[in-house]
């Protein structure tokens, strides 16, 4: 399955007859911070749970650090850090006991670094996990994941449920920790600003399909939103491929096009538009365009 730390091949998952993942192919290269985006219930957590062997895929295969997800050994697991959505730590344990358990099971444990994190996060060791705030639980989860110096870090919507201040604080610390080390990170979130700050490569899941898989900057450069004004009624079809969204109102047409290039511009010019204005797009705009119902084209690795 190659040298990539994260590999998925034709991943399909059904829940109660409903298709949640529909043939996902993805390879995350070493050292990459990969932001996995999708709406709530879009399949992000399912992908991560399958990757970690927490549940089985209906079809296809996944591998972490070169090992099949269904057969991850303790050695391989020791090289992976995981911060779960909702931070499912053992709620009735005291923090000290939970830390002791994780440390007891760890093959490598960086005590000094963990101590630093606990101090930075000001985590009370004598309180029960269920007595911690959501923000503190997120920080404890991150500290436990980082203490093993993992080669691969998987963060599943780690800021879910945190208030704005806690989310900002968590991200600042996470970014600081991540940037210091050259590790591979899979970061799933539905908060686009978070992903935009951290990720250098983006994947967007829509209806169980990976409709985007490319570098963040490349994505921003390649997806264009254009406001086109025609002298008379706007044409019904522009015969341009990879139109993500198209809205027409009288003479005005607003287009979102993937892989915008001179050829496509030349085709548009044949319709004699009065003006073509490029509208600025943030990642959020791109995401919204991608996740709208009946999105036409798909662009993926190698195509963009």
């Amino acid at each position: 399955m190659g040298d990539s730390p994260i590999v998925m091949e034709n991943l399909v998952k059904y829940y109660d007859g409903r298709r949640v993942l529909d043939g996902i192919d993805l390879e995350v290269p070493r050292g990459c911070i990969y932001g996995l985006l999708g709406r709530n219930g879009g399949g992000k957590t399912t992908i991560i749970r399958i990757l970690l062997g927490l549940e089985a895929a209906t079809r296809g295969s996944t591998a972490l650090l070169g090992q099949d997800s269904t057969q991850l050994t303790a050695q391989t697991r020791s090289r992976i850090g995981y911060v779960a959505e909702g931070h499912h730590l053992i709620q009735n344990y005291r923090v000290r006991r939970l830390v002791g358990l994780c440390k007891g099971l760890a093959i490598h444990w960086n005590d000094a670094f963990f101590g630093q994190l606990i101090e930075t996060f000001r985590l009370p060791m004598d309180r029960k996990v269920k007595e911690l705030s959501a923000g503190m639980r997120a920080e404890l989860n991150l500290a436990l994941a980082m203490a093993t110096d993992p080669e691969l870090l998987i963060l599943d919507d780690p800021t879910l449920g945190l208030d704005t201040v806690a989310r900002r604080q968590f991200l600042e610390l996470a970014i600081d920790l991540i940037q210091k080390q050259n590790r591979t990170i899979l970061f799933s979130s539905h908060i686009l600003a978070d992903v935009e700050r951290i990720a250098d490569r983006i994947g967007v899941l829509v209806a169980g399909r990976l409709v985007v898989d490319c570098e963040l900057e490349e994505l921003k450069n390649r997806v264009k939103k254009l406001q086109v004004l025609f002298p008379t009624e706007a044409p019904e079809d522009l015969y341009i491929t990879e139109i993500v969204q198209q809205q027409t109102a009288g003479r005005e047409m607003v287009l979102t096009v993937a892989n915008w290039n001179p050829q496509k511009r030349a085709i548009l010019e044949t319709f004699g538009p009065e003006s073509v204005t490029e509208l600025p797009m943030t990642l959020e705009d791109i995401f919204i365009e991608c996740t709208k119902p009946a999105v036409a084209p798909i662009w993926q690795k190698g195509e963009v």
Binding site: A74, R77, S78, Y82, H88, Q91, N92, L105, A106, I107
Partner: peptide, 17 residues
């Protein structure tokens, strides 16, 4: 109920252990 194995399995352990 407490999802203990869900936590343990992502640490360096296996289901068999």
């Amino acid at each position: 109920t407490r999802r203990i194995s869900a936590l343990l399995i992502v640490l360096p352990t296996t289901r068999w252990q």
